[in-house]
Design a binder for these strands. Structure first.
Lengths: 238, 238
DNA sequence: TGTACATCAGTGAACGCGCGTTCACTGATGTAC
DNA sequence: TGTACATCAGTGAACGCGCGTTCACTGATGTAC
């Protein structure tokens, strides 16, 4: 008698599901997510195309699984990098480590990156299952910023516009940041503004690099990214 | 006798070429560039698919024409917005106007924006004809920054790393900026660094908005973009 | 001005292709007694 | 432990579809004399 979770069938299922996902991700390197072909993936794995339907109910389901897997990998990379900084109060070091981990993963997985941060697939709406995975990498960055500012004497001064305007405009972000901060603390709207702008700048920089817009302008992408990240750290007063 | 440039044929050719391009751009709103179908475009225009080949030698040629047209429109929008600021020494106003023009055009033409700044079409390499169009919007921003700093007493101080490192890393950008500056002036590497970072942040912000990454965080995209742009203006010391 | 020829836009059929998905099947694996 | 039945992974054929591109054609427009 075999326990339900370790029969040959169950193990094979897990393994082959992984093989299909891996093959699909390789395909994504050479074709956009919209052109991802289930039949091509099946061929790569060595099955007949209809067999894939034993594992994924449709092409969209495959895309969803890919999205979740990729988001989780990116999130895990950021988390690991942050955790590897021994001096937990060195927020600049943690920020730099996490940002570079995000870029390193992106450079190593261009197809996956395009899936996550490139043009959305037309006609495909990511289901809610993807949200918790999608938020992981971002949460690492947010936590570093919030923790750095937690319990400081002075709140950041609003640079442009009024605090009230910022609060209204960033209501959603403030709620998200508030959930990740200590229960009693309220998050400063100016800090939220700078955090979102920094987060956007990081992925904007990676996208520009990956999609070829920095060709001819920047020679050393890693060094350039490092510059951007350290400037953002200063901006965020980490 | 009719002059070569205004025969009925020539006029029809120009008109229909425009109709094909327009139909293709509508299609791009609902399908990524990789999935753009020549047959579908032909159908929309009311021709048989093979007739399109009288106007474009291949699907890739159509894509190239779309790229050039869209880049030129975006560039023209930025140029017009900049030119409409009467007080030419009010560089902040010019910067804000140009940036908003870029965002407004992008929001109004999401399909075209994705073509220009989204995931590149796999297997398609934009030919060199596109470069001069591609550079127009960017040039507007660069010119504002350079002109603002032209002939100032103090050069910007390098914030992170050494000026030498920046110069090496940004050789390509420095050459580009140098071409647009007054002949005798040399462009400060720190200024180049901040300019590229600002340029990247602008398109990063627009991409995040357009591709859905700000949903739930930011409520008023236009106000948020305005914040970003004004902060960048300060950063650039316009 | 009128005619003969050349150019060219648009047609419609055809090519070979790959796609997502369904379905009846077979044989191996798992389960209950 | 052994047998009977149920589950399920994988097969292979088939469906209807849309795609990019080629080609011989027709009829209208343009050009040269």
């Amino acid at each position: 008698m075999t326990s339900a979770s370790s029969t040959a069938r169950t193990r094979a299922r897990i393994e082959i599901t992984g093989e299909i996902l891996a093959a699909a991700r390789v395909r994504l390197t050479h074709a956009g997510p919209g052109e991802l072909s289930l039949r091509a993936v099946a061929r790569d794995v060595g099955m007949v195309s209809s067999a894939v339907y034993r594992y994924f109910a449709s092409r969209d389901d495959l895309l969803t699984a890919l999205l979740i897997e990729a988001y989780n990998e990116l999130g895990a990379a950021a988390e690991t990098a942050d955790a590897s900084v021994a001096e937990r109060t060195d927020f600049v070091a943690r920020w730099v480590a996490a940002c570079h981990a995000i870029r390193d993963w992106s450079v190593a997985h261009p197809g996956d990156y395009a899936l996550l941060y490139g043009t959305p697939v037309p006609g495909y709406a990511a289901p809610k299952d993807t949200i918790s995975a999608a938020v992981r990498a971002t949460s690492v960055l947010v936590d570093i910023v919030i923790t750095a500012h937690q319990g400081r004497d002075a709140e950041l001064e609003t640079r442009v516009g009024s605090p009230q305007d910022l609060e209204k405009m960033l209501a959603g972000a403030l709620e998200f940041l508030g959930q990740r901060a200590e229960p009693t603390t309220s998050v400063n709207a100016e800090l939220a503004m700078r955090t979102i702008a920094a987060w956007t700048a990081i992925f904007g920089t990676i996208s520009f690099e990956m999609f070829g817009h920095l060709v001819g302008s920047v020679d050393d992408y890693n060094a350039y990214f490092d510059q951007v990240v350290r400037r953002l750290a200063a901006e965020l007063e980490l």
